[in-house]
């Protein structure tokens, strides 16, 4: 596969992002490595092609935001809002991620090997997030659809005002937010968990060591007859 390298020490970020916004057919299958990201904001945002991007170091705010189709790997940490509003594709942070990771993401898979900060998966709208470490307080706040898998612990007010997202937590939950409750692990949820663990490099982790949390559905006008529509 063709490989291309950009060094942000001597290349404008705009040049790199403009290259990554070329027509999908030109980029498809290419590997792009971005070195010396040095915490710059908005690296590899708005991608819409089946391209593999490696950000080799620490990324700043909104890395891989609005991602579609692309696979973006951050070898270091990611700052606020990594993969925010992702539509599809995969974003993999090998270090830790700061606040609001995967906020409002509608599709695709966000993998964070380390810890995630506060408000991870806030207003999640259908994407999957797997966190190898722990998540901070107010994670999955008002999450509407999708799945959050946490191998470590969760902070305060997990899943506050939750809609129909599933929250799988292996460690301790400091406290549950309003209208979030523990659910029995049904077969469908277990299958989702097993699939996500396999996709995120955690196939060896026992799915039965997780608890499932979901919405008690008392805070919104939910008709269970319509559950299939979600």
């Amino acid at each position: 596969m063709e490989s291309l390298k950009f060094d942000l020490e001597n290349t404008e970020l705009r040049t790199v992002n403009q290259y990554l916004h070329r027509p999908a057919a030109e980029l498809s299958g290419k590997n792009v490595v971005i070195s010396n990201p040095n915490g710059a904001h908005n690296i590899a945002v708005g991608l819409n092609a089946e391209v593999n991007v490696t950000i080799d170091g620490h990324a700043g705010y909104y890395a891989a935001g609005m991602n579609q189709l692309a696979t973006v790997t951050v070898t270091g940490s990611a700052s606020t809002g990594v993969a925010e509003n992702m539509m599809s594709g995969v974003v993999h942070v090998k270090g830790f991620a700061s606040n609001a990771a995967g906020a409002t993401a509608q599709g695709g898979l966000l993998i964070i090997d380390g810890d995630a900060g506060l408000r991870c998966g806030i207003s999640l709208k259908g994407a999957d997030i797997v966190v190898g470490g722990s998540v901070g307080s107010f994670s999955a706040f008002m999450a509407q659809a999708g799945n959050l898998v946490v191998l470590g612990d969760a902070g305060e007010a997990l899943g506050d005002s939750l809609y129909e997202a599933r929250l799988f937590v292996r460690g301790n939950v400091k406290s549950l937010g309003a209208d979030c409750e523990e659910k029995e692990m049904d077969q469908e949820s277990r299958n989702i968990l097993v699939d996500l663990l396999a996709k995120s490099g955690h196939a060896e982790v026992d799915p039965d060591s997780f608890k499932l949390f979901g919405s008690a559905r008392t805070l919104y006008n939910f008709h269970v007859d319509n559950a299939g529509a979600y």
């Binding site: 040095n38 915490g39 620490h58």
Partner: peptide, 22 residues
């Protein structure tokens, strides 16, 4: 406030970089 300001410190690649908890 951000890693941008730490990126040019000597040998920062071998530093333990972390986000302090609230």
């Amino acid at each position: 406030s951000e890693f941008r300001s730490l990126a040019h410190l000597p040998d920062v690649k071998n530093a333990h970089v972390f986000e302090p908890s609230p």
